[in-house]
């Protein structure tokens, strides 16, 4: 097996009852590559990310990272392998401050294997954490909100916060589920700007509907439909694929 594949799935199948959400999906991406996944609603994109990040176990098939079979690893263990994600429906801690949200993400990365002991003894406000968290807050323009309780923030800020948390874990692989959904053009462009900066610096797997934004920075594009990847390749090539035009653009 070629070890350079940072993510690979082989024959991944997932059923919900009699409904097959993913059907025999093979997928791979190279280290430091940026790949976009598009597809109609209900195509199985979120389910696919859920399987990659360990939210679900597949019914059949395997998930590999750098040649290692991670199919049965818990989500937390996959984070230890430096795979971080965001959710389509924003997942943040509403009762904590913006600072604490990002600090928790960074703290996990910082402590690594010594976490079990240091979680008792360490506080989240210490120089190194302050330094790093303020960096990520600035990148996502959240620095003025540092003390706000997250529950009171608008969706746009929460989405950026979740991205900041994913980046704060300093992952090798970033898995993003519709990070632009529900945002205005201005906000989207800002996030695209950040993602562009990190392209080819981290591996990025992103599910999004806004194809025009994706093509600005992804290397390859995959199209999902009814639980299968129907096309996967360079952006233009994929978008011109006749089957894609039929299923996705309904042409």
């Amino acid at each position: 097996m070629d070890n350079s594949e940072i993510l690979m799935t082989k024959g991944v199948t997932k059923n919900f009852g009699d409904f097959t959400a993913l059907n025999d999906v093979d997928f791979e991406m190279k280290d430091k590559e940026a790949v976009g996944i598009i597809g109609p609603n209900g195509a199985g994109k979120t389910t696919f990310l859920n399987i990659i990040t360990g939210y679900y176990m597949p019914d059949k098939g395997n998930v590999f990272s750098e040649g290692k079979d991670i199919t049965h690893l818990s989500p937390a263990k996959r984070v230890a392998l430096k795979i971080a994600r965001t959710f389509q429906l924003v997942h943040v801690f509403d009762n904590l401050s913006v600072f604490e949200n990002v600090a928790l993400a960074f703290f996990r990365h910082k402590e690594g294997k010594s976490l079990p002991l240091r979680i008792f003894s360490q506080s989240l406000s210490q120089p190194l954490i302050d330094e790093k968290v303020s960096e990520y807050l600035q990148i996502f323009e959240l620095d003025h909100l540092i003390d706000e309780v997250v529950g009171n923030l608008p969706l746009g800020s929460k989405k950026r916060l979740e991205l900041a948390m994913a980046f704060a874990a300093d992952p090798k692989v970033l898995v993003l589920d519709e990070p632009f959904a529900g945002l205005g053009d201005q906000e989207i462009n800002e996030i695209v700007g950040v993602l562009k900066r990190y392209t080819h610096n981290k591996t990025i797997l992103i599910v999004e509907h806004k194809v025009s934004k994706l093509t600005e920075f992804v290397d390859r594009l995959a199209v999902m439909n009814e639980g299968e990847i129907i096309a996967y390749g360079g952006c233009q090539e994929t978008l011109n694929n006749p089957e894609v035009r039929r299923c996705y653009w309904k042409v």
Binding site: F93, L96, L104, I119
Partner: peptide, 26 residues
């Protein structure tokens, strides 16, 4: 304890345990 990472982890788990898992916490 309240001011330590443990205190924050407790509070975080209370509102969104699944997110805590995806931040890598057991």
């Amino acid at each position: 304890m309240d001011k330590s990472a443990l205190g924050s982890s407790f509070r975080a788990i209370r509102v969104n345990e699944s997110k805590m898992k995806f931040l890598g916490y057991d």
